[in-house]
């Protein structure tokens, strides 16, 4: 398939997925029981009061109509207003997104550096001491849910060795970007959660490249040292590695929900758990839609980049996902 056509198909598929997600988001928050009117009116309201609030919110109209209205607003950048605070949802989402990125970007950088270097080193010498040691360590890390990694870090740095602030409190008007010491701990927690799987995928990709006939040919022809590692192995292992890294980054968005909640980082994830707890339906919808859109965008970019980097066409490394 031609490249531009292939990219167009991917973009359309991503848009279709996003549309499906928006339907799921809307259905789960508005159609399932536990409606917004019941929450707003409180547990002691009479049925009539509940109904009045439902009418005021427009809940008496058919679901499809409300969905279309919501989507029309979302396309124009209007996600409604929060039930709990009455503030503009799009504004909240924007502010939270900046904070989330302040933690996410350093975490991704840490993973790329560490997993890249260690994965290459372990893959080059399969079965070596480093490989075996890393294999055990990463297995342990993968077996540990994100929330445990984060809790251990939090416990260690609040209770036994309080050198870093564990809770990210930022004075109003300041941004988290200006406080690297507040970002460090959540970013490390996030990075540890994603490191294990990424390292193993990169290692597998490097080991696969090392075992190919062309890598052996290069070795037999005396290509050694940095030229071999960089020019032969890394260059050819890059496409699946980029794929693994984008999947990991997309996965970190899920991990961020836990880490942000635990460290009180006012990002998308912690806002989402709070909005779920308060049953603030418009806010949950807006946050979910933005989180889903970012995930799909990341995967799309990863797909396209991997395809552009792939030296052997989509068949050599298995079908592009």
């Amino acid at each position: 398939m031609r490249l531009d056509l292939w990219i167009a198909v991917r973009v359309v598929a991503a848009l279709a997925t996003l549309t499906a997600l928006s339907v799921v988001v809307f259905w789960a928050t508005e159609v399932l029981p536990g409606d917004a009117a019941g929450v707003l009116s409180g547990p002691h309201a009479t049925d009539a009061e509940r109904e009045a609030i439902g009418v005021a919110l427009g809940l008496d109209r058919p679901g499809a109509e409300r969905y279309l209205e919501w989507m029309r607003g979302a396309l124009g950048g209007d996600l409604g207003t929060s039930l709990a605070t009455g503030r503009d949802v799009a504004g909240i989402v924007g502010a939270r997104l900046v904070t989330s990125l302040a933690v996410l970007v350093p975490a991704v950088m840490m993973i790329v550096t560490l997993a890249g270097v260690l994965g290459t080193a372990a893959g080059l010498r399969q079965g070596g001491r480093l490989d075996r040691w890393l294999s055990g360590t990463t297995l342990g890390l993968i077996g540990t849910p994100d929330f445990l990694v984060a809790t251990v870090l939090l416990a260690v740095f609040t209770a036994w060795w309080p050198v870093l602030p564990a809770v990210a409190l930022v004075r109003p008007g300041e941004s988290l970007w200006q406080h690297p010491e507040l970002v460090l701990l959540p970013a490390v927690a996030l990075a540890l959660g994603g490191f294990g799987a990424t390292m193993r995928l990169l290692r597998a990709s490097v080991a696969h490249t090392v075992a190919t006939p062309f890598a052996e040919f290069a070795r037999l022809n005396g290509v050694r040292g940095l030229r071999y590692v960089w020019g032969v192995v890394v260059a050819n292992a890059l496409a699946p590695a980029v794929m693994a890294l984008t999947v990991m980054t997309a996965g970190l968005l899920g991990g961020a929900i836990v880490v942000e909640t635990l460290f009180n980082v006012p990002g998308l994830g912690s806002e989402l758990t709070q909005a779920v707890a308060h049953r603030d339906v418009p806010l949950v919808q807006g946050l979910s839609l933005v989180l889903g859109a970012i995930t799909l965008l990341l995967l799309l970019v990863g797909d396209v980049t991997a395809r552009l980097l792939d030296r052997h066409g989509p068949t050599a490394t298995g079908p592009a996902r």
Binding site: W27, G34, A250, G292
Partner: peptide, 24 residues
């Protein structure tokens, strides 16, 4: 298989949180 890929692309916790909003 394409729709399965699409479903797998979404963060698991996001879907769990959404369902938990609908049926707490």
């Amino acid at each position: 298989m394409r729709s399965v890929d699409a479903l797998a692309a979404l963060p698991a916790l996001l879907l769990l949180l959404l369902l938990a909003t609908g049926a707490p």
